[in-house]
Amino acid sequence: MSGKIGKQIKRLRLTQGLSLTKLANRAGISKGYLSSIESHKANPSAHMIQKIAKVLEVPVEQLLNTQMEILDPEWVDLFKQAKKLGIDKEDIRTFLTYETWKSLKEEV
C-alpha cells in the first residue's frame, strides 16, 4: 500500500510545485521521512497520511485510492477563482445550459 500512497503523494506534490522540503516542513515531518514514503521505503501511519493530505489540500481517500479520477489542476484553479468571485454552481450550470442551447441552435 505504501507504494501507491508514495506515488500519489509525489505526483500531487510535483503537480502543486512543492519541493520535498516545502511539503515536509508544512506537514511537520522530516524531509528524509517524506522521501522514504515517496520512494516506497516507509509505510506512513494514518496520522502522517492525514497531515500530508491536509497540506496538499486533498481528501485522505485520494492518497489511498490511486483509481480516483483526478481533476486537471487548471480546472480546479478556475473553479476556485469563480468561487472567490461569488460565482456559484448554479451560475455555472446556467451558463453551460445556455452554451449547450446556443450550440444546438447553431447546428440547425
Rank of each mutant, 00 (worst) to 15 (best):
M1S: 15
M1F: 13
S2F: 09
G3Q: 11
K7L: 09
K7M: 07
I9F: 06
K10G: 10
K10M: 11
K10A: 15
K10I: 01
R13F: 09
R13H: 08
L14M: 13
L14I: 14
L14D: 08
T15W: 05
G17K: 02
L18T: 05
L18H: 06
L18F: 13
L20E: 10
L20S: 09
L20G: 12
T21P: 02
K22M: 08
L23D: 14
L23I: 06
N25M: 05
N25D: 15
N25F: 01
N25Q: 15
R26C: 05
A27P: 07
G28E: 05
G28L: 01
G28M: 02
G28W: 01
I29P: 07
I29N: 06
K31R: 10
K31A: 05
G32R: 06
Y33F: 13
Y33G: 04
S35I: 00
S35Y: 04
S35G: 11
S36Q: 13
E38A: 06
K41D: 02
K41A: 04
N43V: 05
N43A: 09
S45P: 05
S45C: 05
S45W: 01
S45Y: 02
A46R: 15
A46V: 15
A46Y: 15
M48Y: 11
I49Y: 01
I49A: 06
I49K: 02
I49C: 04
I49E: 03
Q50W: 01
Q50K: 12
K51R: 15
K51G: 02
A53Q: 07
A53K: 04
A53D: 10
K54R: 13
K54D: 14
V55F: 12
V55T: 12
V55N: 07
L56M: 05
E57I: 06
E57N: 15
E57L: 09
P59S: 13
V60N: 09
V60D: 13
L64A: 01
L64T: 04
L64W: 01
N65D: 13
T66Y: 06
Q67D: 14
E69C: 00
E69K: 06
E69L: 01
E69P: 03
I70T: 13
I70C: 03
I70R: 05
D72I: 00
P73I: 10
E74N: 11
E74A: 09
W75N: 09
W75G: 05
K80L: 14
K80E: 15
Q81P: 02
A82W: 09
K83D: 12
K83S: 11
K84S: 14
L85C: 02
L85S: 07
G86L: 03
I87H: 05
I87P: 11
D88Q: 07
D88R: 07
K89V: 06
E90W: 08
E90Y: 11
D91F: 04
I92Y: 00
I92D: 01
I92Q: 00
R93A: 04
R93G: 00
T94H: 09
F95C: 03
L96P: 00
Y98F: 14
E99H: 11
E99L: 13
E99W: 10
E99K: 14
T100D: 15
T100A: 14
W101N: 09
S103I: 09
K105N: 11
E106H: 07
E107M: 08
E107N: 04
V108A: 08
